[in-house]
Nucleic acid binder design. Structure first.
Length: 380
RNA sequence: GCGGACGUAGCUCAGUUGGCAGAGCACCUGGUUGUGGCCCAGGGGGUCGGGAGUUCAAGACUCCUCGUUCGCC
């Protein structure tokens, strides 16, 4: 078996769904996979040994945030992000392209790159395709993402058409500055993923993929979805775009999503997902369970002595009552963040494990159907 | 005992020359998709301490009364 970093091995398919393994410099990642988000080098409220116990296989970090604080060079001097954060499994780093979208009041986009104004102190920083990869290499990222432009929902065809060309030019510059022989050799072994865009136009989604697919990237992402569009539209674009991506490379749906979104992604042949939803919602009292979404802040749980999710075996569900979890949330106790995060990530990661097993067993569709039934109203 | 100040939503308080009783927080219900421990949307809440009077109309003006508080005897 080829264990070289960058190699993606597909073990089984079930319809369009795939089960596989992506090899990195810090070991293999089984797919489909959900990647918890640890923007500043920490999955909020959790320690690495928690994540190990949850069986998290890979986490995210963010170029923009880590560059600003504490600084990529400082992290490099500490031996890289893995050692700095005491996490020895793979790390994927986002390029900062999404921050150009989410922090759009603070940035200016040009051919050269993205000019940011720091959300921390207002200082200006130019992020070029080359610079964001330098930063990611210094961090010691296992999977680096190219700089891209993510356009807001509602952007017109003309602007989006120019935008995908810019994203392609940036991808070319990225690959030229960090050719495969550089990023796949030496001590640092950094895979490099491209990001397809195209807004909400099928022709542009196709064009973006056709421009990027022939290039020598280790994986291909679908960016620019889940930016405020109606769910039906997202699912339509997802179903249109995912099959266009190279079949022999990992496919990554960025920033998505809800359990149903993720299952829908898998059903369309996507292998990798990341989302802040399980951790952010954990901190905001929304918990995912085998019974559906539960808002633990609701008054009805004030004297509910039962477990959060009777079907869950996580520490939180084994040990505490809904009444206690509600109390912790209402009191804004730190333990609330921790227990809720432990639970939500358990749910998401278990969902992926089950999805992978069902693909291997050829029963993915049945599982997909049960998840659809669990989240009515979310379906397109 | 005398004098002053204050009594308005659960809390802290606005409320103009008298003209539909408000805010912030709290509470309740949603939302949250490549993370600023945020933020957004909606909602329930009032015998304006009590009573009487003036007035077309009183939270506001007048009188009585109860309470809190400060000062002075």
């Amino acid at each position: 078996m080829d264990m070289r970093p960058g190699h993606f091995q597909i073990e089984a398919t079930d319809g369009a769904a795939r089960a596989g393994a992506l090899h990195t410099g810090h070991g293999a990642v089984p797919t489909p996979i959900f990647m918890p988000v640890g923007t500043v080098g920490s999955v909020k409220a959790l320690a690495p040994d928690d994540l190990q116990a949850l069986n998290a296989r890979i986490i995210l970090g963010n170029t923009y945030h880590l560059y600003l604080r504490p600084g990529d060079e400082l992290i490099a001097r500490r031996g890289g992000l893995h050692r700095f954060a005491a996490w020895d499994r793979p790390i994927l780093t986002d390029s900062g392209g999404y921050q150009a979208f989410s922090l759009s009041g603070l940035r200016k986009i040009s051919e050269e790159g993205v000019l940011f104004r720091s959300h921390l102190d207002g200082s200006k920083h130019l992020f070029t395709p080359e610079k964001v990869l330098s930063i990611q290499r210094r961090l010691g990222s296992d999977i680096m993402m190219v700089l891209d432009e993510c356009v807001p929902y509602g952007t017109d065809h003309a602007y989006t058409a120019e935008s995908i060309k810019l994203t392609t030019r940036w991808a070319l510059r990225s690959r030229e500055a960090f050719p495969a022989e550089l990023t796949r050799g030496g001590e640092a072994y950094n895979l490099l993923f491209a990001i397809t865009q195209g807004g909400f136009f099928k022709d542009l989604r196709r064009a973006s993929v056709e421009e990027l697919a022939p290039l020598d990237f280790d994986g291909f992402a679908i960016g620019g979805l889940s930016v405020g569009e109606p769910k039906a539209e997202m699912y339509e674009l997802l179903a249109h775009t995912a099959p266009l991506l190279p079949a022999d490379k990992p496919r990554y749906l960025m920033g998505v999503g809800t359990p149903l979104d993720i299952m829908t992604g898998i059903a369309n042949g996507v292998d990798m997902f990341d989302c802040v939803l399980p951790t952010r919602n954990a901190r905001n009292g929304t918990l995912y369970t085998s019974l559906g979404k539960i808002n633990i802040k609701r008054r009805e749980f004030a004297e509910d002595d039962g477990p959060l999710d009777p079907a869950c075996s996580c520490y939180c569900c084994r040990t505490f009552s809904r009444a206690y979890l509600r109390h912790l949330y209402v009191s804004q106790e730190l333990l609330s963040f921790r227990l809720n995060s432990l639970h939500n990530l358990t749910y998401f990661l278990d969902l992926m494990t089950r999805a992978r097993q069902s693909i291997l067993a050829g029963s993915f569709n049945a599982m997909y159907t049960t998840i659809k039934a669990l989240y009515p109203g979310e379906a397109a």
